[in-house]
Simulated assay, not measured.
Amino acid sequence: MSNKRLPVFELTIFCLVTVVFYIMGLLFFCQNSSNTMNSHWLYVGFQVVFIVALLSLLLFLRRILVSKNLEIAEKKAIQKNYLEQLNNTYEGTLKALSYALDLRDHGTWGHSARVVSYALAIAEKIGLTQQALRQLAWAGILHDIGKIGVPDSILLKKTALDPDEWENVKRHPTIGYEVIREIDFLKFAADIVLCHHEHYDGSGYPKGIKGEYIPLGARIFAIADALDAMTSDR
């Protein structure tokens, strides 16, 4: 990256020299104004020199401005590239964690990836921004992370769950929320993780909220999760 600085000192000297020569020219013109013909051409010549000096100054300033703009553009490009690499690192880490969770529960093998795919398709259709889509993807990858707090004896049980076991399973959105809510770049995802089992009619869990009180991302994931449950062998 360029370390060019704005040449303030050089610019100041240039302006001072221009002003000094202008004043000297005026004094010289006044002293020789008795000869009308000579003074006329002297005045014209002096004005031409002064105009050339001003044009040189403007070109000098333009060069500085262009150089500064190029430096700013270079910095922005580096920052954008760094941010993209950072986001890719975040996403790769989250995918690895999601894969580890799916390995624990073979009944939901590939579940997170499918739900993310469905949710993003819905989000694109309703016109969410690229930034919102990225945050939605992160939330989808982690939406079942709270299942790490559900015992294997319940999570992997082949028969129907009893009421107490079902209440234990219903804690996983709250557990997931507590796990990620303090991570700065996942704050948006935390509310989706907490509310992705809420239903529009208020019959969901853990809070039983309904309608537009449910975050938009969570509503999208509730639909995507239901679609995956109906179309896959879980």
Rank of each mutant, 00 (worst) to 15 (best):
D191Y: 07
S39K: 02
T12F: 02
F29K: 06
A229G: 12
S153A: 10
A73Q: 06
L42M: 15
L103A: 13
I13K: 12
F28N: 14
F9D: 08
I209H: 01
L6T: 13
I223N: 06
L65K: 13
T93S: 14
K157R: 01
L16Q: 06
Q130H: 13
G92L: 09
A96M: 08
K210E: 12
V20P: 01
H106I: 04
P163V: 04
I51Y: 01
K75L: 11
H196T: 07
Q131T: 15
I220M: 04
A137L: 06
K170P: 02
E124V: 09
A190F: 02
L155W: 03
K170N: 12
K76V: 15
K207C: 01
Q79T: 11
V116I: 09
G208L: 03
A229Q: 14
N35G: 04
L194G: 00
G217Q: 04
F14W: 02
L11D: 09
K80I: 02
L54A: 02
H199M: 11
I175N: 11
H196N: 07
D144G: 00
R219I: 05
P151W: 01
Y118E: 07
T18A: 13
V115C: 08
F9R: 10
G45Y: 00
A119D: 01
Q135D: 15
A137Y: 07
K68L: 14
A96F: 05
Q130R: 15
L26I: 14
I126R: 05
L42A: 04
T89Q: 14
A53C: 00
K158C: 00
N3G: 10
R219H: 01
E165I: 08
V193C: 03
V49G: 09
G149D: 01
S33F: 11
E178S: 09
L194C: 02
Q31A: 12
V17R: 07
E124K: 15
N81E: 07
L70K: 15
I220P: 05
V193R: 03
D233F: 11
M37N: 09
L54F: 00
I141V: 03
E182K: 06
L101I: 10
S2R: 10
L101R: 13
L54I: 04
P163N: 08
C15A: 15
L94C: 11
N88W: 08
H111T: 14
L216C: 06
L142S: 06
L120N: 10
V193W: 02
S33L: 11
C195T: 03
L59T: 11
Y205C: 04
L156E: 03
I154F: 00
N87A: 13
G127S: 04
I72C: 04
A77R: 03
K210I: 03
Q79C: 10
L94E: 03
T89N: 14
N35I: 09
R234C: 05
C30V: 08
I64Y: 05
H40Y: 12
K170T: 06
I51P: 01
Y22L: 05
A224P: 03
D201Y: 09
S203T: 15
K75T: 15
